[in-house]
Amino acid sequence: MPTQLQNTKEKKELTAIWQLLNEVCDPEVPVLTILDLGIVRDVRSLPQGKQGNEEGFEIIITPTYSGCPAMDAISIDIRFMLLEKGYKNFKITTVLSPAWTTDWMTEEGKEKLKTYGIAPPSHSEKKGEIAVHCPQCNSVNTKLLSQFGSTACKALYQCQDCKEPFDHFKCH
């Protein structure tokens, strides 16, 4: 096959895989896909296998927090999703560097979080945190109850106006 044609085929294939990955959701925050979260860092073709006809690919993922138990589940979910769609030659590689940051979360993902009742991260901790808006009434009159919440990625807040306690996805 001429290289150019092959490249086009490869490109199509990779696009199809990215689309499939966008159907894999975070098990703890099921409104977010793993693409919304910025967990998938790359999808790349692997050189042909020994038979010369097995084109494979590699999915590079990165954990949110070092101890996030969802990572194992996410890796399994990706595997099942791809196997179900008939893909066989792929591998999932976890990388730690560069370290994940909430800056990689999509704007769409942040909107979905808010609708779900979790205050989204504003921007990364390096730039400093601005006021956390209550996801219910949008008030900025909110109070930190605990830096640690129901999962590693969340802190517990309470709205001083509507009194509703809520989770805040920490800037990271």
């Binding site: 101890g67 605990s146 919440g149």
Partner: peptide, 13 residues
């Protein structure tokens, strides 16, 4: 929850 969250970070590392 706080101390167990810290613990979770430590075990992950």
């Amino acid at each position: 929850i706080a101390i167990t969250n810290i613990t979770l970070d430590l075990i992950g590392q």
